[in-house]
Write a protein that binds this DNA or RNA. Structure first.
Lengths: 227, 227
DNA sequence: CAGGAAAAAATTTGATCATATTCTTGGCGG
DNA sequence: CCGCCAAGAATATGATCAAATTTTTTCCTG
């Protein structure tokens, strides 16, 4: 959400608390596919791997568990969730409901600069797709939507939508790994055009299609049999 | 979500971890109005009040912060969030999007027993409204919706919808305290009737109206000026 | 004698606590 | 009125205890 100074402390600002740093690191790892669905996540493993204390790691894990990015396995174990077909359907419902609302608000508020920045991200995204650079694709695709959220200026809706990315991030990574980046069309250009023209309804619809298209692709890749 | 054994350990089962117990206690306190919007929540206060250790309390707070039930004030302070008019609007959007979807799924799946249980809850709710029993009203109103979520069998959507209750719970309490329970009509009867008849669309619409009605009432009570 | 299931020991991991450290804040003196 | 200092609260650490998993051992059966 807020861009806290995750790194070293600049001149006067205090460094971010360790638990926040750990949280952000873990979050990125989950979002951009350093973890695979089903993978166990151990506290002690992270403690040694990140060189952090036990308490910050525990807190970061709790936070991510609450966001649905990790799953409490009952027996004190925590794993990266594996999505079943029903879960994907739920995510489709949720994203189809939320993202168009955010896009609409963004279209109503966007300045020319913000739209330009959006387009810049999308161009980088195109390049990543051309090069088949999956990590860059995942990052920039998320970045595009995150920029849209920021423009929408709706903190609660944004937090919820962001949480959804955490849920399907690991699976998206798997799907991309299988299919490459070529067959991943989006509706970003249409969205940007609509925003330039101030056509709120069209922007809303473009994002709706973008989201559904992407989610259905995940579902088809993971569960081809299911209708 | 899952009904862990929060209390003493029954014969063979291990007692729930302290951090979960603390989480559930805090959660209830927030949901049913033991905390008021803006109220600061201190770790040490909870440690002494609940007689729990510091680590479990910290973890519970982190979890509730991630769910939006508490707010990180930046300077290490945590408070119960105060909703502004825009926040309420966002909550309306989110609930209007999610609850009908859940109601639809519930209507598609409900057994006669489940509908009967729903009706029983609603009758208790009516009694609480008659008696002006605000705590009971808050509890049973939530219970009604929670039962609906359970029937819908959609864990992700349920978790998100549940999180929304945590966000407006404290404010709902304030509104009820101001207006009493009399002027709080709902569409529960219509919902139950529609479910009995298997009229999925009507159930969806009834819940949609129920939710909007309730949320608009909160908005009007807190921010009368705003359209 | 080999294979395998059950039991027991060992190791790994999670939960909690007491304590030290760091940061914020409110009051006091300049 | 501004800056410094002390009190209090939050953060972080490492130790300790408990639970779960894994490995080893044992014993029985074919």
């Amino acid at each position: 959400m807020q861009t806290a100074n995750v790194g070293q402390d600049s001149n006067n600002t205090a460094p971010a608390p360790a638990h926040q740093q750990v949280y952000h690191q873990l979050r990125e790892s989950i979002l951009f596919g350093d973890f695979t669905p089903g993978q166990p996540v151990t506290i002690q493993g992270l403690v040694t791997e990140l060189g952090a204390g036990m308490t910050p790691v525990r807190e970061a894990i709790r936070r991510l568990t609450a966001e649905g990015a990790l799953e409490f396995q009952g027996n004190r174990r925590v794993t990266v969730p594996e999505l079943n077909a029903g879960n994907v359907d739920e995510l489709i419902i949720a994203r189809e409901a939320l993202e168009p609302a955010l896009a609409q608000r963004a279209a109503e508020r966007a300045t020319a600069e913000q739209i330009a920045a959006l387009e810049a991200t999308d161009l980088q995204l195109d390049r990543a797709i051309e090069h088949g650079d999956i990590p860059a694709y995942l990052r920039l695709n998320y970045e595009f939507h995150a920029q849209l959220y920021a423009i929408a200026a709706a903190p609660i809706l944004t937090q919820i939508a962001d949480g959804l990315w955490l849920r399907f991030g690991p699976s998206l990574r798997v799907v991309c790994g299988r299919m490459g980046t070529q067959n991943l069309p989006d509706r970003h250009k249409e969205t940007i055009d609509a925003m330039r023209l101030g056509d709120v309804e069209k922007a809303r619809e473009a994002i709706r299609e973008d989201v559904i298209q992407g989610m259905v692709q995940i579902r088809e890749a993971l569960y081809p049999a299911t209708a």
